[in-house]
């Protein structure tokens, strides 16, 4: 299909979005990522029955935790698509990138940079 999607997105592969833990999402923001999103299978179509539903719960939980901390919860999002939907994947990547650009950079970025220099 040779579809384009924004090059700022780094993909981390997991066997199922059910594997994604609260700390994976929170840790990404803590380390300076501007946003994180989970792309899971369509709801109701999980091979492990509820992996993507658990991921959604965790994403919503992390959103709340970030709001408590003082960071926009919407930097973390959940998307669903089926594995055959390449164009939708690219569209979501674009949508997330534009959304995060509107929010601006992660306020913790300077701390993450300082740590990298160490």
């Amino acid at each position: 299909m040779r579809l384009d999607y924004p090059s700022n997105i780094k993909i981390i592969r997991v066997p199922c979005t059910g594997k994604v833990d609260v700390m994976h999402l929170l840790g990404a923001i803590q380390k300076g990522a501007d946003g994180v999103y989970c792309v899971g299978c369509m709801e109701g179509a999980c091979h492990y029955n509820a992996g993507n539903l658990r991921a959604r719960e965790r994403v919503m939980h992390v959103q709340k935790l970030l709001e408590e901390v003082g960071i926009e919860g919407d930097r973390v999002r959940m998307y669903n698509l089926s594995s055959g939907e390449g164009p939708t994947f690219a569209a979501y990547a674009k949508e997330m990138t534009e959304h995060i650009k509107k929010l601006g950079p992660n306020p913790l970025k300077k701390w993450a940079r300082a740590k990298n220099k160490e």
């Binding site: 803590q30 935790l65 408590e68 901390v69 003082g70 960071i71 306020p107 913790l108």
Partner: peptide, 8 residues
């Protein structure tokens, strides 16, 4: 959470 909040 504490790490992020205090850095902010």
């Amino acid at each position: 959470e504490l790490d992020m909040a205090r850095k902010l």
